[in-house]
Design a protein around this nucleic acid. Structure first.
Length: 267
DNA sequence: TAAATTTGACCAGT
DNA sequence: ACTGGTCAAATTTA
């Protein structure tokens, strides 16, 4: 995997970021243990998040290179997900299909977002899920519901592992469909939760005046505040969201107990 | 019953 | 050889 295209300085950079992140985590634990004031803790959480996000972004820029970033200094306790695999339920009829027969997309136009909520106002259809090496949370794969109409937009979602309830979302391609009707529904459904839409990062996307590009209506911080107190409205949220969230929460315990310091570095 | 999700299989890239 | 991305049959949901 260590391709020649991954210069040493990048690895060094990642190493340093990991060190910084791990140290910050230790500091955070220390703060919590000593019950110091909240603002100090908030600050550390923010720093931590920066490390995690930086690592995520940095690595995803490498599109192909996957560093064996032990989420936590050589932590290799995660299996690759293989062990989780159920035994084949039945002798399974021989498949004549062409599963996996596809053209792997080159890193065409992709944008990365760290978001509090998975929903972004578009209609997505899940087409796969994978356990990712060294990641606690599975990665879910979505395509636009209107794929049949030629819309090639894709979305990958994975829960961050820095303890926050955020998601690492990668958008690939752009909507060519008029996939907007859910937005109007969201306005009316949102209740106390408030309406949110992703603001596709136009700094990376400056040439995408597509219909799909929605400007931010409410920033994600509001969501953060409201998330803590409201869990109603979940019923309208697709199951895959629960799944991603559950995976995170249960494992969080495990990692806290084990002194896990891993962050949101997932790729 | 149609649409959506789950999940094991398969393939490309490294 | 290994991992991640996609396919599609089976299953679940509306």
């Amino acid at each position: 995997m260590e391709s020649s295209s991954s210069p040493n300085y990048k690895k060094a950079l990642i190493r340093e970021l990991i060190k910084g992140r791990d140290s910050t985590k230790k500091l955070l634990n220390l703060l919590r243990r000593n019950n110091l004031n909240d603002s100090a803790e908030d600050l550390v959480v923010k720093i931590l998040r920066s490390f995690s996000d930086s690592l995520s972004v940095l690595n995803s820029c490498n599109s192909g290179d996957s560093y064996p970033v032990s989420a936590c200094s050589g932590d290799r306790r995660f299996d690759s997900g293989q062990s989780k695999r159920k035994p084949a339920p039945a002798p399974a009829p021989v498949v004549k299909d062409r599963r996996g027969c596809y053209k792997r997309r080159k890193t065409e136009d992709s944008r990365i977002k760290i978001v509090d909520e998975i929903e972004d106002g578009f209609l997505w259809r899940k087409y796969g899920q994978k356990e990712i090496l060294y990641s606690k949370s599975p990665r879910c794969y979505f395509r636009c519901t209107h794929k049949d109409e030629g819309c090639k937009a894709l979305k990958q979602v994975q829960k961050l592992e820095d303890g926050s309830e955020k998601f690492h979302v990668t958008y690939i391609g752009h909507h060519t469909c008029q996939n907007m009707h859910q937005n109007t529904q969201m306005f009316s459904d949102s209740g106390t939760r408030g309406f949110f839409l992703l603001n596709f990062d136009d700094t990376k996307l400056n040439n995408s005046p597509s219909l799909s590009t929605i400007t931010n209506i409410q920033n994600t911080h509001l969501m953060e505040q409201e998330d803590a107190q409201s869990d109603h409205g979940q019923s309208s949220i697709p199951m895959w969201k629960d799944m991603i969230s559950d995976a995170g929460s249960s494992q969080e315990e495990l990692f806290n107990n084990g002194g896990y310091l891993g962050g949101g570095f997932m790729f």
